[in-house]
Amino acid sequence: MESPKTIIKVDNLQTSFYTDKGEVKAVDGVSFEIPSGKTLGIVGESGSGKSITSLSVMRLIQDPGKIKGGQILFNGENLLDKSEAQMRRIRGNQISMIFQEPMTSLNPVFTVGDQIAEAYMIHEGKSKKEALRKALDMLKLVGIPSPEQRLKQYPHELSGGMRQRVMIAIALACNPELLIADEPTTALDVTIQAQILRLINNLQEELGMSVMLITHDLGVVAETCDYVAVMYAGKVVEYADVETLFESPKHPYTVGLLKSLPRHDIDQEGELEVIKGMVPTPDNLPKGCRFAPRCPFASDICADRLPELDELEDNSQVRCWIYTDEWDGKSGVSVKDDYGTFASKES
């Protein structure tokens, strides 16, 4: 996964929340990097730490949360060393974010135009008039019909899809190098989802930015991402480019996720498979591999020790004992999936 220029490199990021019950490790040693112009998908269930990862990159973690350790290198500079004032100049300017809920992410008392214009007023010191003119250009860019009128409308007068377009317009106003999209399509209708994803993809090509896409939808990942990090209970369990991940998923959790998707290209009989059990809560993590209690392959070592994120021959990384020499379970275990491929390790 080498590329000439890496926009952002997150190294061993640890974010914890300090509650009455003690420290809760929401993000525990997450590492990834995004090459310029590429898209990284971060996939995981609710509570896997994917949103906290994105907020950590923006340095927007609020009390009682704290970034405990690690590095976030943005264009080679560690964001964790920046002052709050320096971070403010980066937010919305070089790194932007769009949120899950377009219905509540816009301030109800200001017009759409005012809110896009604010980005220019904060970062480029533009006058209101000039900022509004640039806001109009942004509305055109994100494909909103009759932008002159929309500019003067309030959020409640727009549909969900339109509002998400406005959010994208705000995020991209200052031409950021990295766009963090936290479940940008989850709250939208399926048809609108496709439109919004296509819009993000097109704009990414047009503006040459990198995208970090947080989602729980593997279908979205397949369509839009170049690389994928699968997160489980605060840790990355599998990290691969998108073809490798879908062709030969390694981690039993990834396989389980893929199996639980309905498929149209093969005949399926009976019910969809599910991953039994629940994500462990971060304040009550298992001692060994965090997926072990739900894993159909789990053996003694899994319950005992946490595996490392190891790189395999096909350049993908996986955090699972099955792929190590220390594997003590059944020999020749195959993490088989219904894709007609095998991810196996003879031991």
Binding site: M58, R91, I122
Partner: peptide, 16 residues
Amino acid sequence: LEYIDAVRALGASDTR
């Protein structure tokens, strides 16, 4: 509310 997070993510200062 989320729109406050959104303006914070836009780089707005606390006073603003």
